[in-house]
Design a protein around this nucleic acid. Sequence first.
DNA 1: GACGGCCGTTCCGTAAACGGAACGGACGCA
DNA 2: TGCGTCCGTTCCGTTTACGGAACGGCCGTC
Lengths: 189, 189
Amino acid sequence: MLHDSLMDSGTQSPRPAQDIGTPDVGQRIRRLRKERGISLSELARRAGIGKATLSGLENGTRNPTLETLWAVTAQLGVPLTLALGTGPTIQGTAVEAVLLQVFEDEAVTYELYRLTIPAGSTQVSPAHHEGVTEHITVFAGVLSAGPQDAPLRAGAGEHLTWRSDVPHIYSAIGAQDVHASLLIRYPRH
Amino acid sequence: MLHDSLMDSGTQSPRPAQDIGTPDVGQRIRRLRKERGISLSELARRAGIGKATLSGLENGTRNPTLETLWAVTAQLGVPLTLALGTGPTIQGTAVEAVLLQVFEDEAVTYELYRLTIPAGSTQVSPAHHEGVTEHITVFAGVLSAGPQDAPLRAGAGEHLTWRSDVPHIYSAIGAQDVHASLLIRYPRH
DNA sequence: GACGGCCGTTCCGTAAACGGAACGGACGCA
DNA sequence: TGCGTCCGTTCCGTTTACGGAACGGCCGTC
């Protein structure tokens, strides 16, 4: 189901296939730390862990413990989620979609994605099964999305919904990357 | 900002204040495993880890390694995010809101939450600053939410938006818990 | 009611993540 | 130019998470 969604027909910028399953947590931690303008030593001290541990974590030479990650992310004031980056990413296409949550009840499955579309890119996805709907809320940029022959447009803060049982597209219009959340709703067929 | 949002005036079911920072990952893993109807031994074998390791993880007697968590969640087919639950959870209220993502650009901050409201519960939140808007997509249950004096209603698959610069409420109507995604949009003041 | 199969837990030796200390490098200053 | 301070990395002994094997418990079957 996950891979039915968005995988096909990207028209630009196939990004380097990074290893699923080994997200670079270290790089993210380092970036978060730098953003806050604090040194490795200082963060280690505040988090109550060794400098060696933090150094190894950031450089990816250690395989950190959950406890260690908690100590660090808590001190940085971010959810673990953010540091882990998380989730299977659909790749090799114009659109990057990171799966954040799956919710299932007896009748419906929902998948919630964090969506990034590089400026100027367009992606076409084939029709889903009947009854599948998509809901997008745009964070930034201008998005054109929906049925291929009649796409809708939304800017930051706006929301789109369409039935995705027809071929549909996602485009980032203008000079800005599009960031959005995408919810796909699959009724049990 | 995070704690301005939802913290106040819960009217029911203050949940036992579990430790932030030590979410019971083990319980979640165990639940996910049971849902799939597979045994501990089987999951350990598939994930390529020891039974002892998985047993310790589920019972919370070990402090698992990131690598171990990856192996298990990948095998369960869920994003790590889901197993960790995690992120700062706003508690002691009717609503449980788990922060999944924060997105900032020059003009706006977005916070994306996974929302759970127990059946029959109601929660009131005070007004936010002017310009703040909220966007909810309902996964399951029936939600009544929006300005306190004129709430809107949405069922599974539907979407609500309102300006949250007035006091607003969230209610789970009927016998079913409400699951939803909540996006809060904060323009730079 | 003995037996085999599978369950989840416990035991145990090994590998590795941990924190503290030592290290070399970069910078500011007398 | 020598000295003090702080940076991030490396070294090293200790702690602990790891997987394999052994264990007791619970059911089927014969």
